[in-house]
């Protein structure tokens, strides 16, 4: 069992960094959702805030890692002007061309909204820390931005998985 150089970086991009972000979402969502005074003891607030700070910061780092490896390492192989690159394979068949024209074209752009929003969420959590529990409106704002960051990453991840299935990067 072995991976090619291309497969290795595709795994780092999608299955390590991308997956850390997407899987971490559930924990972050629960942490932000339940950061409410009537659900927590004063001792619990401090521990929850620390875990939330570490979690959302790690997610922002993972989101940046995902788009940076995707755009600057994996994408050049995808679009390489050779007959067996995934882009060439998809465009060679009218039945699969839309995976590039729509799927890849949207994924490669919209994915970049995710780290920007994840960084904003991390900034808010680091700025207020446990104090976010006293800012109900701001907590909901943070939740909304967090969900949007996940949604854009999910779109990119879904198209990435489907495109890789249709035309794998070998």
């Amino acid at each position: 069992m072995s991976f090619t150089h291309h497969e290795f970086w595709t795994l780092i991009h999608g299955m390590v960094l991308g997956a850390v972000f997407l899987l971490g979402f559930a924990g972050g969502l629960e942490g932000l959702w339940s950061l409410r005074p009537h659900l927590m003891t004063p001792e619990g607030i401090r521990g929850r805030a620390l875990r939330l700070k570490i979690g959302v910061t790690a997610m922002a780092v993972a989101a940046w890692g995902t788009v940076l490896t995707g755009t600057w390492i994996v994408y050049p192989w995808y679009r390489e002007d050779v007959p067996d690159s995934p882009r060439s394979v998809l465009l060679a068949d009218p039945a699969t061309a839309q995976w590039h024209h729509f799927g890849m074209e949207w994924k490669e752009h919209v994915a970049w909204l995710s780290p920007i929003l994840a960084t904003t969420v991390a900034f808010i959590v680091l700025y207020y820390g446990a104090g976010l529990i006293r800012h109900e409106r701001l907590r909901k704002t943070t939740l909304a931005l967090f969900v949007l960051a996940f949604a854009f990453a999910a779109v990119a991840g879904l198209f990435g998985a489907l495109i890789t299935k249709t035309a794998p990067l070998l």
Binding site: P37, T41, R46, G129, L132, E136
Partner: peptide
């Protein structure tokens, strides 16, 4: 007992809770 009063000062929150909201609005 859980802290049931959102307006009650909670020592664990520190000074962060009272920071101005401007930097957050700027980031958003």
């Amino acid at each position: 007992a859980p802290n049931t009063n959102p307006a009650a000062p909670v020592p664990e929150l520190g000074e962060a809770a009272d920071r101005p909201e401007g930097p957050v609005a700027a980031a958003i």
